[in-house]
Amino acid sequence: MSAFRLHNTGDQVDLQTVMTILLQVLVGGLSLGVLYAIVALGYTMVYGVLQLINFAHSEVFITGGIVGYFVFHALQDSSMNGYLKLVLACLAAMIVSGALNVVIERLAYRPLRGAQRLVPLITAIGVSLILQDTLKFVVGLTGMFDLSVTLPKGFTSPLTKFAGIDITSLNLQVKDVILLVVATLMLIGLNLLVNHTRLGRAIRAVAHDRQTAGLMGIDSNRIISLTFLIGGALGGLGGVMYAMKYQALNAYSGMAPGMKAFSAAVLGGIGSIPGAMLGGIVLGWVETLLGVVSLFSALPGLHWLSYIKAEYKDLGGFLALILILFIKPTGLLGKSSTEKV
């Protein structure tokens, strides 16, 4: 993206370049945003049912990425269709991460049900650390610290045409579109699940009032397990998407994106599912925009933008979070706490 420079030829600014950069931000930010969103959902769904911040989710997420790496690696020389490889990687990652999340809840959080809130919170941090070291061990078995992901052929090809229009200037690769499509489908699927199925209603009922849900014949422990399963599976899928996007990861790669996804969940209103989706996308856009905004410093009157260096983009996401929480403490779509029983 930084390949672009705005040319200020007298008073004439290259409008087309500005538009191209904005389009890049729109599309690039969206694909980053949906990635944050599916990871953010894991935080927000678990928070919804247990009022617990599952710090281990960043490791559950990157576990999916590592599983994805192994699947791609194992199938590297297979003549199998690339999309089929991707499906297998996603399925394996979702199963492993989902199951891992269920086990974490069962072993670490359930015994602490009813304890003061700080206790499971600290436990969550502990689980996160244990998983990091476990992952480091597993990754270490390959003899490497950093894994570099070999994607199926064609995934990294540049995308030149969309609906007949030349989009070479957007610098997109096939994998960016895959990410966008897969993550968006997941978000739609989750929305359908939560809003239009018996299980989804049960999840929302348990999230709001576990005791009364019990009076409806709902086994809240089962629903909590299922919530961890779904949240973990989404995280695992996010991990594969991450591995695909950056093609490099290690046992600690979950931390930074995990933190950002958590911020996205808070930004959107922790506990709110549409909030996590919106928060993720907003964060993706803010971050991507901040990464290129200094390019606009060539425009008249916008000279000061040159101070916003691309390296600040991570900071920018958190600043956006603080700003929004300052204006609306419950997050964009968060319910006021008095509505919770």
């Binding site: 709001h208 009032d209 009364t212 019990g214 086994d219 319910k335």
Partner: peptide
């Protein structure tokens, strides 16, 4: 546990109603 008992044709309308405020009437 109550979720098991409630599968045996018993219902309990709790004190304070405890409807699910974020769910629609139909839900």
């Amino acid at each position: 546990p109550s979720h098991t008992i409630m599968q045996r044709s018993m219902s309990h309308v709790p004190e304070g109603r405890r409807i699910f405020p974020q769910l629609t009437v139909r839900e």
